[in-house]
Simulated scan of single mutants.
Amino acid sequence: MSEPGVFTLPQPARERILLPALRELTEHHREHSAEYRRILAALDHRPGRAYRTLSELPWLPVGLFKRHTLRSVPAGEVFRVLTSSGTTGEVSRVYLDRAAAAAQQRALAAAMRTVVGRARLPMLLVESRAVLRDPGALPARAAGVLGMMGFGRDHAFVLDEREAPDPAAVAAFLHRHGGRPFLVFGFTFLVWSRLYDLARQHGWDLSHGLLIHSGGWKRLTDRAVDNREFRERFTSDTGLRRIHNFYGMVEQMGTIFLEGPSGDGLYCPDFADVLIRDPVSWRVLPVGEPGVVQVLSTLPRSYPGHVLLTEDLGVVHGVDDGDWPGRRFSVLGRVPRTEPRGCSDSYPGRAR
């Protein structure tokens, strides 16, 4: 059902490929973005500088996308503006031309085929259709749902138009499709607080399901539910065993870091990598030491989002020693005193 996809490169080969590509992107954005050019000048990163390792490349804090217009295409070529799900009124804005939007969708598809395969499975969305009604810029939550819907068919929604649970809709979906493979997608907090609770209440068998979920761990931590318990309780109470968490952000939309089959960590696609930095010295930390997550991707070309310092804490668990090649890591939470955000963390607070 699944296929090799884009989680194939051992770490040494990955770095040999990524370094020249990211150097080229740095010069591309320097040439096409005046804002980025000024930032590099302020950091004393001059044109033609020789970057010998990924860690030497200039990174931008993701917060800059909330305060600056960072794009590397003319305003008239902007096809879509993606916005993050910040809760304080400040949101990131990411500018895509048509080529960038298409590249993001291709990259997402290649990553998802690793676990989903090429067949479009019946799909259960732990969402409401109401979240998709946005005529302008796409918030991260809606963009994530729309991006995933293309991998399924005969879509059913766990939540009704008022964003309340709709057990009849889920029961009807399972009656039609529950006896053979089907796909489930949702943001982590909603999957736990809505689908898991409903499945346990109604005794639903989800053993043929494949769950893809992301974001919202802060609320689950508040409930003392970690990734291991999440997986174990879904398996024991609903029969659902095929579960893949993923990590991504609007500032690098299309680049997803996907959990391996055994749940041993998140993995980088072949066109991306992750570093963990000390929050004081900014040095790159070794395996096992937690710090601030830095993400690198060759995907962003219409805006300078190819090397970003996130507002998340994480830790690398190992390199070339897990389900798939490359670095495997976990996200531990938000950096203290940064704005809590996340697609499902912005969900209306009716469920407690």
Rank of each mutant, 00 (worst) to 15 (best):
Y247V: 14
Y247R: 09
G248N: 15
G248L: 08
G248M: 04
M249V: 05
M249S: 09
M249K: 01
M249W: 10
M249E: 00
E251A: 02
Q252E: 01
Q252G: 05
Q252P: 04
Q252R: 06
M253F: 15
T255E: 08
T255Y: 12
T255V: 15
I256C: 08
L258S: 09
E259M: 15
E259Y: 14
E259S: 11
E259N: 13
G260E: 05
P261L: 08
S262T: 15
S262Q: 10
G263C: 12
D264F: 15
D264Y: 15
G265P: 02
L266Q: 05
L266Y: 13
Y267F: 15
P269K: 04
D270T: 08
F271C: 05
F271I: 09
A272P: 12
A272R: 06
A272V: 14
A272H: 05
D273C: 08
D273A: 11
V274P: 00
V274E: 00
L275N: 04
L275K: 07
I276K: 06
R277N: 06
D278P: 01
V280P: 11
V280C: 11
W282Y: 14
W282R: 10
R283K: 14
V284E: 11
V284C: 07
V284M: 07
P286R: 03
V287D: 10
V287W: 12
G288R: 06
G288E: 01
G288C: 09
E289C: 13
P290K: 04
P290C: 11
G291M: 06
G291D: 03
V292G: 00
V293G: 00
V293M: 01
Q294F: 12
Q294G: 05
Q294Y: 12
V295Q: 02
L296V: 03
L296P: 01
S297G: 04
L299C: 09
P300L: 08
P300V: 05
R301C: 04
R301N: 01
S302E: 02
Y303Q: 05
Y303V: 07
Y303T: 08
Y303P: 09
Y303W: 06
P304W: 11
G305T: 05
G305K: 02
V307Y: 03
V307P: 00
L308M: 10
L308K: 05
L309Q: 11
E311A: 15
D312Q: 10
D312V: 09
D312M: 13
L313W: 04
G314K: 11
V315Y: 08
V316H: 11
H317V: 06
G318E: 10
V319A: 03
D320M: 01
D320N: 01
D320I: 08
D321I: 11
D321M: 12
D321W: 14
D323G: 00
D323K: 03
W324P: 03
P325G: 02
G326Y: 04
R327I: 13
F329C: 07
F329M: 07
S330I: 02
V331G: 02
V331E: 02
V331R: 08
L332Q: 10
G333E: 05
G333R: 06
G333F: 14
R334F: 15
P336N: 13
P336H: 10
T338A: 02
T338Y: 06
T338Q: 01
R341P: 03
G342T: 13
